[in-house]
Nucleic acid binder design. Structure first.
Lengths: 181, 181
DNA sequence: TCAAAATATAACATTTTATAACAACAGTAT
DNA sequence: ATACTGTTGTTATAAAATGTTATATTTTGA
């Protein structure tokens, strides 16, 4: 009913389900706590999702970002701002672009998906494993050992942040992000 | 009745089978422990209502499942039910436990995270990379080539579904899921 | 700005449902 | 037959949900 009408009165729900209004109030409280609806004086309405935090697009290439995205790269900026990019490729470019405004940069270990600091991470480029996000592809590892073992099987080069940044920036001259998806 | 309606009252079952409600409670308790149904106050309903929201616990070891969890294993069952386990280890065990009720089993390629069919996937065990989920650890690959390249760097054995199932089932005798987290 | 009406909340009473403990019963092996 | 086992029903008690009432809050309209 709420979804169809957008707004329903407590009394209508009470009559519809043949229970007291008190029960409706109590049940709606649960839905409110789940953030699904919003109670206003005299009724309920659908909660607006607009104020949700999720950033759904890559700040750099504007490609949609999936929720699971282990490739994502996050930039913590001054003034409580946060930016998210689809992968380390765009993350590094944006990072360099913003400069000192970046307080921290986070990415994920490609193997374990644990969150790590980008500046101390190990980056793998030129590997045979194509994740299909952006070119040139950059994979992130929290652990040098993991990065090297990965390269053993899938080829590629292990780099530090600055090295990777340089490589990507160079490649940027000739155009970068794939448009796919 | 539960599968048809999705939800049934204890009283209805009691009248239908001409036994006391106490007996229904007791019998349902067994089905609950098997994870087939869920008791709510005043009735029973199917455990996982089709396409509905996320299941937050591993059906097998009851460990919380993170949303990103690329290790997760999903079982599509009859009557629109879906089960989710924390990793292939629990997934395979549950898969074998349920038998024919399983219509399909899904997991993810460890590298690309693309969704693949478990029965045709490639499984890697005894590798040096510890993901810290369950023991013995089982990683899933959609691509034989990826699995072999992975093993090149991180060691381990590449197996087909039945082989992996056998290996895990054997290890199960001596206790299985890690209790962590 | 105020009072009246409408709606919401809190506290308590009532009803419904669940659980635990026990007793009765049937089947089985000794 | 006797003791044992497992299932079921009964009862008393606990827990949860709902309803009722009194009181607080918000809205409305003058």
């Amino acid at each position: 009913m709420i979804q169809e009408e957008g707004h329903v009165k407590i009394r209508d729900l009470s009559e519809k389900f043949e229970v007291s209004e008190m029960t409706i109030h109590r049940d709606l409280k649960l839905l409110m706590e789940q953030g699904l609806v919003k109670k206003i004086f005299g009724g309920v309405q659908l909660q607006e999702v607009s104020n949700k935090i999720q950033q759904k697009q890559c700040t750099y290439c504007h490609k949609p970002i999936s929720n699971e995205g282990k490739l994502t790269y996050q930039l913590i900026l001054s003034a409580n701002r946060i930016e998210r990019t689809c992968c380390a490729h765009c993350g590094i470019l944006r990072h360099k672009q913003l400069g000192e405004v970046v307080l921290q940069a986070l990415c994920h270990d490609f193997m374990t998906n644990t969150t790590i600091s980008a500046t101390t991470a190990w980056f793998v480029m030129d590997t045979s494993l194509q994740m299909g996000c952006c070119e040139p592809q950059v994979l992130t590892f929290g652990n040098k050992d993991h990065a090297e073992k990965f390269v053993k099987g899938f080829d590629g080069t292990v780099l530090r942040f600055e090295e990777a940044a340089e490589r990507v920036t160079e490649a940027m001259q000739a155009g970068c992000c794939s448009k796919q998806k």
